[in-house]
Simulated scan of single mutants.
Amino acid sequence: MKMLKTALLLLALTFNAAASAESMNRSAEIDKIYEQDQKTRTLFKRGDVYDRPTELKSDAANRMRLFEMMADDLPWTARDFALVSRVFQHTNTGAESEENENWRSQENHLLGFFLSRKAARLGKLEEAGSMVSRIERYLKARGIPRDYGLELVSRTPFKACVINPQITDEQRLDAGLPLRLNEIMKEFCH
């Protein structure tokens, strides 16, 4: 019995050390994002010359990375992620009618994308279509051409890919889509 308790203690310490290392890496990345954000805010306050379109893209990309980290670190089930994705998808700001996509918070579409992607990673493969539709709604609301987005290639086997792989992630960023879709969809497009 004493040996079992010792083994369980060692296992708990090992798990705690691994979780701590992961937490330290995440914290370091959050610190870096925060420092970038504060550097931008300092430029605003001092009235320095800066490239505003580049800063806007950087700000959006940083928020998207934080959303992704948040979704990756939550101890939820695939079903939970799928349901929360739908909730974010239907967030109404109250400013416009439902017929107009502009009333939706665009970043909620992207958060919904990450939540659907997490649900798919956890085995809820029917969320593949949700990943695609979340990106489509974002593109529509922003007036970005659909070929900058995703398509569901097949449900069985599950495969979702960028519509036009010739469009680079930098071109997507320049168009206003703060996601590196070519990069982050590799795991689903093989």
Rank of each mutant, 00 (worst) to 15 (best):
L177F: 07
M64Y: 04
A82C: 03
S116Q: 09
N25W: 00
A61C: 01
A60E: 11
R180I: 00
T91H: 13
D72F: 07
L66D: 01
S58C: 02
R26F: 00
F67Q: 02
I33A: 04
H90S: 09
G149I: 08
R79K: 15
H90R: 13
S154A: 12
W76D: 02
L74D: 02
P165Y: 08
N25K: 13
I135F: 12
L13W: 02
N100G: 04
C189V: 12
W103G: 11
L74C: 01
K186E: 10
D72W: 05
T40Y: 15
Q38T: 09
S130D: 10
I33G: 01
E127V: 05
S130G: 14
N164L: 01
L110S: 03
L11M: 08
I184D: 03
M24T: 14
E101N: 13
D59L: 15
N182A: 00
M24Y: 12
D72H: 09
E35R: 14
S58E: 12
S27V: 08
N25A: 15
H190E: 08
T156K: 15
L152F: 11
V132T: 13
D31E: 13
G47F: 10
N100M: 07
L43T: 10
T77D: 02
E187Y: 09
I163G: 01
G94R: 04
R52H: 11
Y50S: 03
L56R: 07
H109W: 06
I167Q: 03
L150Y: 11
T156N: 12
L122D: 03
L4F: 06
L139E: 01
T77A: 04
A160E: 04
Q171T: 07
Q89E: 07
E151R: 14
L110Q: 07
Y34V: 10
T93C: 01
F113A: 00
K124E: 05
P178T: 08
H109S: 08
D59N: 14
D174K: 15
D51N: 15
S27W: 09
P53I: 01
A120L: 05
L74G: 01
S20F: 13
G123E: 01
G47Q: 05
F44S: 06
L66C: 00
R180D: 03
D72Q: 12
R65H: 07
N25Q: 14
S105W: 08
F81M: 11
S20V: 06
L13R: 00
L173F: 14
E151T: 14
D51Q: 06
E187D: 15
E55C: 03
P178V: 09
T168V: 07
E99T: 10
N100E: 07
E101L: 15
L125P: 00
R142Q: 12
S130R: 09
D169V: 10
T54M: 13
L122K: 14
C161W: 13
F44K: 14
A61L: 14
A128M: 12
P53D: 01
E55G: 00
A141G: 14
T168R: 08
L66A: 01
R180Q: 09
F15K: 04
